[in-house]
Design a protein around this nucleic acid. Sequence first.
DNA 1: CTCCAGGGATGAT
DNA 2: ATCATCCATGGA
Length: 305
Amino acid sequence: MGNEALREVAATDFDLARTLDSGQVFHWEKCGDGYAGAIGSEAVYVKQRRNRLHFAGTTAEVIGNYFALDHPLAEICRSFPKDPPMRAARDFCRGLRIMRQPRWECLATFITSSMKQVAHIRQISQTLRTRFGKRQRIINCEANSFPTPSRIAKLTEQDLRACALGYRAKNLLATARLVASGEADLEQWRELSDEALRAGLCDLPGVGVKVANCVMLFAYERLRAFPIDVWIERVLKQQYFPTKRKMTAGQLRSFSETYFGDHGGYAQQYLFHHARVASGRQAIAVNRRYPMFDRKKGRAIHRIA
DNA sequence: CTCCAGGGATGAT
DNA sequence: ATCATCCATGGA
């Protein structure tokens, strides 16, 4: 893996490993001292050395755009609310950027993500890519592009079920057909307002509000979009409403849309990554040991003896 | 409003 | 080796 084959680009205020491990993208694999993956149809190898990215397979422009190296990260972090959980998340997530992913592969991957955990989403993504995408070599690594909408549209539900998609197979197939036929024009949807884009995405089979918000944030650069999954729900309830007995989904949604501001999606990603990586395991372990704490409700179980 | 399909990784025992 | 837990959408 000679360095002479690699080109370089400056990447200040960026943490490649953290960004790839933050639950927004699922197909990059460790290879040597870097990562192999695909950006759209191009196989790419990339590794980080301090404030530079060394890469092969594409151009500096594509790398910079994909990893959003132009996002003013310091300014974005300054726009976060000044509260303890947000500060802790911000300090923990230095260099984490919200990427600009190709729309179709992001949408398709998040359709397969419902009711799945990160490790499993990664496995499904790899299976779809190795079976139906295009295999390429890059440096000494292998990378597979995500299958196009028309490629998936020609498959059967059984083909997809064989990739461990379960009931998601039907949804991915139906959405692939809508996109392949042009009935759902993902590129055109760039023009839509946040509300119209969310509505359009939610009309697709297998896409609810949570998945729609992920796609808006990770593939349409709608940096206000605030996906609420169980991790974020836990964080919001525990950190922001610790005494409130009951918070409805609607209350959490309106709070998150107003409180976190213009870069709410970044705030969400930082809170999510911090909760999942830093405190996730501990919280679960502690809860096993001390069942006085109701992990689901995020508060102590009070017993009146 | 409630209930639950469906399934592989994960961690506890 | 077995067992409980994680999880979002859509339909009953």
